[in-house]
């Protein structure tokens, strides 16, 4: 990508120009510098999104994308005989929605609490703090697919270290099939996700904690106020904005979760997420129309949830100075 040729130097003494002329030229340049980015964003984000939405109103199939015919809302809801069909009447889709929301809410809640705890510990000064902070970054840096494989091995029903450890400690009587048991599989996915993303949460909270004014705490200490009270009355309200932003970022991430369940629990219906459901329809079943209806629904649901969160939580995202 080379810079736009229009941005090439036109050397003129600026003193000859009027201020408004200068402003006009700066605005002109600003748009020139933005043009390559906007062109790329339009082609990688806007256009594919619009096409995906369009596909959801067609009977497109993966091998015959060009021959997609418009079928209106049939992928969403249609009455055939005396039964309803379409994504809105598909119990598997709603199960996937429920799984995703369940997963997102539970895992992000645990991550936030745990992240807060880790951040409070790392906020104290102690020897080797830099090293500990680096160690905490490791789960975040490991690719999700890799962490899924590592945990799949650790949770192996026969040779896994977790069963071995629990058996040795006498906490269980017999080995548990962690990823095969329908009642446990969601818990397992949540625990692995918590392991992977708590560091991210902890570091964001830590950054917020380190911006807090020291003198408040000095004053509280001198007045002999209980540390717990200081935490709930001073610390929490002060880091609340940062916390709210960190939570929305994690929630958005959790709602689109794909990699972990695809690798760790590929055949478990109980951990089918919106993303895995949609990809299965699109690629495995080749039903691009139906799959696109799923992705469009997912997009709308997530947009709606985000707006509700931002409005109710009064989160200020990306306010320009």
């Amino acid at each position: 990508m080379t810079p736009h040729p229009g941005a090439a130097p036109q050397r003129q003494p600026a003193s000859r120009q009027s201020p408004s002329e200068l402003t006009r030229r700066r605005t002109h340049t600003a748009w020139l510098f933005l043009a390559p980015l906007l062109a790329v964003m339009l082609s990688v984000a806007v256009w594919p999104l619009l096409r995906s939405i369009w596909f959801s109103f067609t009977d497109a199939e993966l091998s015959l994308l060009g021959e997609a015919g418009f079928i209106g809302l049939e992928n969403y809801l249609v009455r055939d005989g005396d039964a309803w069909y379409g994504i809105l009447a598909d119990p598997q889709w709603w199960a996937a929605v429920w799984n995703t929301v369940h997963f997102a809410v539970v895992s992000v809640s645990i991550e936030t609490l745990l992240g807060l705890g880790v951040a409070l510990v790392l906020n104290k000064t102690f020897r080797a703090r830099g090293l500990v902070r680096a160690a905490v970054l490791i789960p975040w840096a490991i690719p999700t697919v890799v962490s899924a494989q590592i945990w799949g091995w650790m949770l192996h029903d026969q040779y896994g270290i977790l069963n071995d450890l629990l058996l040795r400690l006498g906490l269980i009587d017999q080995a548990i099939a962690w990823t095969a048991d329908p009642d446990r599989v969601m818990t397992v996915v949540i625990l692995v996700d918590v392991w992977k993303t708590t560091p991210f949460m902890a570091l964001l909270i830590l950054a917020a904690l380190q911006l807090l004014p020291r003198d408040c705490y000095e004053a509280a200490r001198v007045d002999g106020i209980h540390p717990l009270r200081v935490f709930t009355r001073v610390t929490l309200p002060l880091i609340r904005p940062a916390l709210m932003v960190a939570v929305i970022f994690r929630l958005l991430d959790a709602l689109r979760m794909f990699d972990l369940v695809y690798v760790l629990t590929p055949n478990a219906e109980d951990t089918t997420m919106m993303s895995t459901f949609a990809r299965q329809q699109l690629v495995d079943f080749q039903q691009v129309g139906y799959g696109s209806a799923a992705t469009t629904m997912m997009f709308c649901l997530i947009a709606l949830l985000t707006m509700v969160y931002i409005t109710l939580g009064r989160v200020r995202l990306g306010a320009t100075p």
Binding site: A45, W47, P48, L49, L50, R51, S52, I53, W54, F55, A60, L252, L255, R256, F258, M274, S275, A278, R279, L282, V288, G291, S292, T295, T296, M298, F299, I302, A303, T306
Partner: peptide
């Protein structure tokens, strides 16, 4: 913010 899978078919 929007999910990657939302643009998958397009």
């Amino acid at each position: 913010m929007f999910p990657q899978v939302a643009v998958l078919s397009g």
